[in-house]
């Protein structure tokens, strides 16, 4: 019994039917515990005041925005190499989740930036990279929507995902370079990882776990939906011929 057994759609559906309730439950539990803990029971930062509470949404969603793309990249590679339909559909299912994560990261970032930096938006390397990542997500989803034949769409989006990943990394470096060139010395670091105290750190970990679990649950569920949609279409096509 290897992992590849679950490339069979029926096996995949059976497995996901068994584990999905667990993931949904854990995700909701972690999110509720983490967010309530973060919102009600953590102290304010002495410099940032209560805005530090935004970290419990901002950091996990930003992480998941990138992780979702990485997961799509891996799934695309598996599809291109081993031609497992479940893999291609999982990549398709993950994209909208990634978009929402990117949006949350951008929105919470803007809301946090307003009182802290005095501006909703700065062309800081990290912010800019996320905006570009958002554009990549949009292009990827648009390509899925535009092509009717599912296998062609899976192939083309996979190629786009591979090329897009390379260019996303390139853009990240380009943006770093560009901003340094623009305003020297002005550094807005969003990365509080190093100086976060334990009081903030543990609820943050719980929230990250919650976002990861929620992502897994959503992707499993959405992949199942895509499998059913495709099977419905196949059956309808057969009916049409009969």
């Amino acid at each position: 019994m290897s992992l590849w057994e679950y490339a069979n759609p029926v096996r995949f559906l059976n497995l996901s039917a068994r584990v999905l309730p667990v993931f949904w439950g854990l995700a909701v539990a972690c999110l509720i515990v983490g967010l309530i803990w973060g919102f009600f029971f953590t102290p304010d930062d002495f410099r940032q005041g209560s805005t530090v509470k935004i970290i419990y949404l901002h950091v996990p969603s930003a992480m998941m925005a990138i992780n979702a793309w990485v997961m799509m990249l891996v799934a695309s590679l598996i599809w291109l190499v081993r031609r497992h339909h479940v893999s291609a559909l999982a990549a398709k299912a993950a994209a909208p989740v990634g978009v929402v994560m990117t949006l949350i990261a951008l929105f919470t970032g803007a809301i946090w930036g307003q009182p802290m930096w005095g501006t909703w938006w700065a062309w800081d390397p990290r912010l800019t990279s996320f905006l570009i990542l958002f554009l990549f997500y949009l292009g990827y989803i648009a390509l899925w929507e535009a092509i009717e034949d599912p296998d062609t769409a899976a192939d083309l989006t996979s190629v786009l995902c591979l090329v897009g990943s390379v260019f996303a990394v390139l853009s990240r470096y380009a943006v770093n370079f560009w901003n340094q060139g623009l305003h020297q010395g002005a550094s807005l670091s969003l990365d509080k990882e190093e100086n976060v105290a334990d009081v903030f750190y543990i609820p943050l970990l719980v929230c990250i776990a919650g976002f990861v679990l929620l992502f897994i649950a959503l992707v499993l569920y959405r992949t199942g939906t895509e499998i059913r949609l495709r099977r419905t279409r196949a059956l309808q096509a057969r009916e049409g011929r009969a």
């Binding site: 967010l35 929105f107 919470t108 009182p115």
Partner: peptide, 16 residues
């Protein structure tokens, strides 16, 4: 007590 940043924090949680 969210202090003067209540709007920011609440709207971040709300939007998300």
């Amino acid at each position: 007590d969210l202090g003067k940043y209540a709007d920011a924090v609440l709207s971040a949680y709300g939007v998300s």
